[in-house]
Amino acid sequence: MEYGDEASDLEELRGHELELPSSEVRESLTSTAYEILRRSTILGDNTGHKVAVGIVDLEPVFEHDTVPKRSPHAFVKVIAKNTSQYALLPGPSNVFFDNNFVAKTSMKSVSPSEEFTCSLGVDPSVRVAYRPIHKYRETGGIISKTTTTTYRQVIEVKNTRQDAIKITVHEQLPLSSEEKIKVHLLEPSIKDKNDKTNKPVRMDKNNNIVWLLEVASCSSQDLVLKYTVDHPSGEEIEFTETAAAQA
């Protein structure tokens, strides 16, 4: 990842990599100053120019994230720790994979020794299929006042990459706002809904079911969400999408 406005920035910066000495950093309570230790020519043409401050090599961890109900794509993000002496300034950034420009992103301010996350956009090598939902109804008899409808949703995550991936999948479990409508989760099994630790399957504060998966190279996994909705017979229920469906 490099700062700048043009894809050619990477080639220019890498061209100086061998000759680029470390910049000296001086910090105060309100500011950070970088002293560039090599000479640079800045033209007086009333336009902006860039000077390379340094090249920082970090050890990032790549993870994927998807909300299939909203978008059948897997988004990749980088989690890294700023192990350099430089404070990373906020602003637009260019993203390169294998010296190829792939996306633009925005960086927040990152201090030395601080961990940060950066979004890298859609990974086309990871495919997410949101299958049509299946439902069927059951009644307790002719005089029953309650109808039970069972819903079964299948999500397929397929990894076509040559390496394994870690991916977080979010799917919303309906939440009833009326006492006469009851929602019961059947699958997956979550024993303690108040446990918010990073377990393989958990429920978050927005009533989302969250799967934490590791999908091997060139393989796929099916995730199943199954639940029942009890409601008064003769009445139709309608699902309304809310912010709870967001990751």
Rank of each mutant, 00 (worst) to 15 (best):
residue 38 R to I: 06
residue 98 D to M: 02
residue 25 V to Q: 00
residue 27 E to Q: 10
residue 242 T to K: 08
residue 7 A to Q: 09
residue 198 N to H: 15
residue 138 E to Q: 03
residue 80 A to M: 12
residue 108 K to M: 13
residue 139 T to S: 13
residue 244 A to S: 13
residue 30 T to G: 03
residue 227 Y to M: 09
residue 98 D to H: 05
residue 86 Y to M: 13
residue 17 E to S: 06
residue 75 F to H: 03
residue 22 S to T: 11
residue 41 T to F: 14
residue 155 I to M: 03
residue 214 E to C: 11
residue 78 V to C: 05
residue 139 T to V: 13
residue 135 K to I: 07
residue 226 K to C: 03
residue 60 P to G: 13
residue 223 L to P: 10
residue 101 F to A: 08
residue 195 D to N: 11
residue 5 D to Q: 11
residue 226 K to P: 00
residue 83 T to V: 08
residue 114 E to C: 09
residue 118 C to T: 11
residue 201 V to F: 12
residue 202 R to V: 02
residue 213 L to Y: 11
residue 33 A to H: 01
residue 205 K to S: 15
residue 107 M to Q: 11
residue 10 L to I: 12
residue 105 T to R: 10
residue 105 T to L: 13
residue 27 E to A: 09
residue 188 P to C: 00
residue 55 I to V: 06
residue 227 Y to D: 05
residue 48 G to K: 01
residue 24 E to N: 05
residue 176 S to E: 02
residue 206 N to L: 10
residue 232 P to L: 08
residue 216 A to N: 06
residue 208 N to F: 08
residue 140 G to W: 12
residue 199 K to W: 13
residue 226 K to I: 04
residue 175 L to K: 10
residue 226 K to A: 02
residue 246 Q to V: 09
residue 109 S to T: 02
residue 122 V to K: 05
residue 237 I to Q: 12
residue 5 D to Y: 14
residue 226 K to R: 11
residue 102 V to L: 04
residue 61 V to F: 15
residue 58 L to K: 07
residue 22 S to G: 15
residue 149 T to W: 06
residue 28 S to Y: 09
residue 181 I to T: 05
residue 52 A to Y: 10
residue 121 G to H: 03
residue 229 V to S: 08
residue 30 T to M: 07
residue 171 E to C: 12
residue 43 L to I: 03
residue 188 P to H: 03
residue 27 E to N: 09
residue 180 K to D: 13
residue 71 S to H: 07
residue 192 D to E: 00
residue 23 S to D: 11
residue 207 N to G: 03
residue 222 D to T: 10
residue 89 L to G: 10
residue 52 A to H: 08
residue 212 L to Y: 03
residue 149 T to G: 12
residue 12 E to Q: 03
residue 93 S to C: 04
residue 74 A to H: 07
residue 123 D to T: 02
residue 33 A to I: 00
residue 56 V to E: 09
residue 217 S to E: 15
residue 180 K to F: 07
residue 181 I to P: 03
residue 191 K to V: 15
residue 243 A to R: 14
residue 161 R to T: 11
residue 33 A to C: 02
residue 39 R to V: 14
residue 192 D to V: 06
residue 223 L to A: 12
residue 11 E to C: 01
residue 48 G to H: 00
residue 61 V to S: 15
residue 64 H to L: 10
residue 183 V to A: 00
residue 156 E to D: 12
residue 143 I to H: 09
residue 12 E to I: 01
residue 96 F to K: 01
residue 231 H to W: 02
residue 109 S to H: 01
residue 122 V to E: 04
residue 93 S to Q: 02
